[in-house]
């Protein structure tokens, strides 16, 4: 299991990456990340939503209210053009980190 400190750092990248494919609401974001990382990254509500609000304040993502098929109001998040711009350097930074760790300690990025 990945430690909370590392998770916090990867959280922004994870959220932006899953939103790159299309708009999702909070629950879907959490499930998609969990699924794509085979359960290694799991967010509690206290970790996920404050981060979504922070990314929204930074205008990297935009949330809009929609009504689900069962009539429940839910907020759907989309990547903004600014968020798309930020995603690429974030990816590069994390790749650099993995490469550096790989060199240092044989940590694989795969």
């Amino acid at each position: 299991m990945i430690s909370p400190g590392i998770k916090r750092g990867t959280a922004e990248l994870a959220v932006l990456s899953v939103l790159e494919a299309g708009a999702l609401h909070g629950y879907e974001i959490a499930r998609r990340i969990e699924y794509e990382t085979k359960g290694s990254l799991r967010f509690t509500l206290a970790a996920l939503y404050p981060m979504l609000y922070r990314l929204e304040k930074q205008r990297w993502i935009r949330g809009t209210w929609e009504t689900s098929p069962n009539g429940r109001r839910r907020r759907c998040y989309r990547l903004t053009p600014t968020g798309k711009q930020k995603l690429s350097p974030l990816r590069e930074q994390w790749t650099e980190l993995f490469v550096a760790l790989h060199r240092l300690a044989g940590v694989s990025d795969a």
Binding site: G26, R31, L45, Y49, S68, R72, R74, R75
Partner: peptide
């Protein structure tokens, strides 16, 4: 109200799943 709606929606979907 918005925070409550959003969290309730999340938990409800989780429950339904």
């Amino acid at each position: 109200a918005q925070v409550i709606d959003e969290l309730a929606s999340h938990l409800e979907e989780s429950y339904q799943n």
